[in-house]
């Protein structure tokens, strides 16, 4: 069993260029990150490419992890999820090659926030349950499968702006619930 502290330590070693730590980090986390890529992409070959790209980013950017305050798995999953979503959208010809790492680096919570997030873990599930079924499904689809407003509008068969209004309202309600 690899604990969060173990993964934290491995990432710190990887930041120093330790290949054996990188190999151990891969062994400890690749199944989860492959699961992320598979869920988003629903295609084994693409998910394998994304897994490889994810770990290349981890190797390259591990030194930025220490400063961002996220839990180690959240950091790794965020990279995998964003890399998978980028791939999904690139294959849909929307050609956004956003630098996922910039996104991650820009979005790290402070250590205090991480502590708060820890005590709040799972609250998101309870708060999502308070949303109407279709709104909850849309938020979950956006998180778990990387669906955009355009994807969700098509899926729920409503105009884009209707979906946008629904979700914006739901996100505000979620935030209110989360910070209560």
């Amino acid at each position: 069993m690899t604990t969060a502290a173990d993964i934290d330590h491995l990432i710190a070693r990887v930041a120093l260029g330790d290949r054996s730590a990188f190999s151990k980090l891969y062994d400890a986390t690749s199944a989860k990150l492959f699961g992320v890529a598979l869920r988003v992409l629903n295609n084994t070959a693409s998910a394998e490419d994304v897994l490889q790209e994810t770990f290349m980013k981890i190797w390259r950017y591990a030194d930025r992890y220490a400063s961002n305050g996220m839990s180690p798995m959240t950091w790794l999953i965020t990279i995998a999820r964003n890399t998978a979503i980028d791939r999904l959208r690139a294959t849909k010809q929307t050609s956004d090659i956003a630098d996922v790492e910039d996104r991650v680096a820009a979005s790290g919570p402070t250590p205090e926030q991480s502590a708060v997030a820890g005590s709040e873990a799972k609250r998101i599930v309870g708060c999502l349950d308070q949303l109407p079924d279709d709104r909850r499904a849309a938020v979950r689809g956006a998180y778990l499968q990387g669906e955009s407003y355009a994807d969700l509008a098509a899926q729920f068969d409503v105009p884009l702006n209707t979906m946008r209004t629904w979700l914006r309202r739901s996100l505000l309600a979620l935030r209110e619930c989360m910070t209560q």
């Binding site: 690749s30 492959f34 699961g35 992320v36 999820r81 926030q113 709040e120 599930v125």
Partner: peptide, 17 residues
Amino acid sequence: VAHFAPLADEYAPVKPP
């Protein structure tokens, strides 16, 4: 990012080749 992080529990691990 912190709020949504627990949703990642739903990603089922799959061992890659």
